[in-house]
Design a protein around this nucleic acid. Structure first.
Lengths: 121, 121
DNA sequence: CAGGATCCATTACGATACTG
DNA sequence: CAGTATCGTAATGGATCCTG
């Protein structure tokens, strides 16, 4: 997800977007930050299943792309806060829509899936 | 992108969605199909950079998830047409928004990037 | 607390060649 | 035309241990 389309023509801006936002965690992290500033540990707890390694990496990429800010407070137990930039906020409705769609699909579509493993017990 | 969250609680439906839609090509393919039915070769030409191998795989996964239909016409030069299901169509606005965002980001944000290679000469 | 370093497994992606 | 088969690279994801 970090290859180099870079200079693709006008077609498939969505492909460009997915290069930046694709992957398992990016949009989930963004969605958390839409709700407000989070510390590293808060994000970790909010995203069960992610390892700190991945969380760190994804946050650095989001920071490099100008979607989140990283603020370090040099205190005795160190504190680092992550927040959305204006650009990051521009994805707010998309993350919301995707979340809504995911919930709808999981609760509605999967039930009536062909050979779905959820017969009405 | 095909692991097993499956039974995640109510948090992070977006993560579930990205498991299904993440990756470089899925949403780009869906976006093409929003415009109407496409043959395999048409999709391939519409998505420069994709290999037939990837296109085949992604289409099969989309089909398995109930987002697209695959219709085979047993003719002399074989013909296969792909189209969106109703569920696939439910992603129409999201693909549109993401495409719009990608275009906006590429044309607006990247220019004024921090330490960007484009100082106002 | 927030991470970096290291090692390892799995998956995504891609180039090329071949086929009904 | 619309694939399948084979092979290789790179990215992703994770476990564990270490540090300012």
């Amino acid at each position: 997800m970090r290859s180099s389309i870079e200079e693709a023509p006008d077609h498939c801006a969505i492909e460009f977007a997915m290069e930046m936002l694709g992957g398992r965690w990016k949009l989930a992290i963004l969605k958390q930050l839409v709700a407000g500033t989070h510390r590293f540990g808060e994000l970790r707890r909010a995203l069960p299943g992610i390892t700190q390694r991945m969380l760190t990496r994804q946050l650095r990429e989001l920071e490099a792309d100008g979607l989140v800010t990283r603020t370090v407070y040099r205190e005795v137990p160190p504190r680092v806060e992550y927040a959305l930039t204006d650009v990051g906020h521009s994805l707010e409705s998309i993350t919301h829509e995707l979340d809504k769609w995911g919930r709808w699909y999981r609760e509605t579509v999967r039930r009536e899936a062909p050979s779905g493993p959820c017969p009405p017990a």
